[in-house]
């Protein structure tokens, strides 16, 4: 779960940065009550009040699903960020992180046929390393 939040904050930061960039290049945010489809179409402003302007980002599609955020800007600063739309579930993600259970291979495989990236095993010393599967994996990619 923590990972999902982390990922989401990363995406959020990217969107916020995008909006922030636009804010700094256009002299001011659109005036009260206007709906501004900006030149590059990344954001829509509206619903502003004395407290500032609310800007809603367009829906960004990510591999996890659609993401959309809304930020309130006051005095040139972002005062709040709200998530309008976020991917549902992330079931595969949860599966992999929270409870990834090893899958037994039907017949024991060598590293190549198992298509693995790294080997976990009882402590390999530098002396034992040359005979290890990990060594084979490293060599295959270093060559």
């Amino acid at each position: 779960m923590r990972r999902i939040v982390l990922w989401f904050m990363t995406t959020l930061s990217a969107v916020v940065l995008l909006l922030g960039y636009r804010t700094s290049t256009s002299a001011a945010l659109p005036a009260s009550g206007t709906t501004a489809n900006t030149t590059n179409g990344t954001a829509t402003a509206g619903g502003s009040s004395a407290a500032g302007t609310v800007v809603t980002g367009t829906v960004a599609s990510t591999r996890w699903g659609p993401v959309q955020v809304q930020v309130a800007v006051s005095g040139g600063k972002i005062t709040s960020v709200q998530v309008v739309q976020q991917p549902e579930g992330n079931r595969r993600d949860e599966e992999i992180n929270a409870s990834a259970v090893p899958t037994l291979v039907q017949e024991t495989l060598d590293a190549q046929s198992a298509k693995i990236d790294m080997v976990s095993g009882a402590t390999v010393t530098s002396e034992g390393y040359l005979q290890s599967l990990q060594s084979a994996l490293d060599q295959a990619h270093l060559a």
């Binding site: 090893p102 899958t103 291979v105 198992a114 693995i116 080997v119 005979q131 599967l133």
Partner: peptide, 21 residues
């Protein structure tokens, strides 16, 4: 990442795999 778990009876082989995000 696909992590292979070494077979303790034959460390040249993989007994299981586990994905790590």
């Amino acid at each position: 990442w696909r992590i292979g778990i070494e077979d303790p009876r034959d460390p040249q082989r993989i007994i299981a795999t586990v994905p790590v995000l």
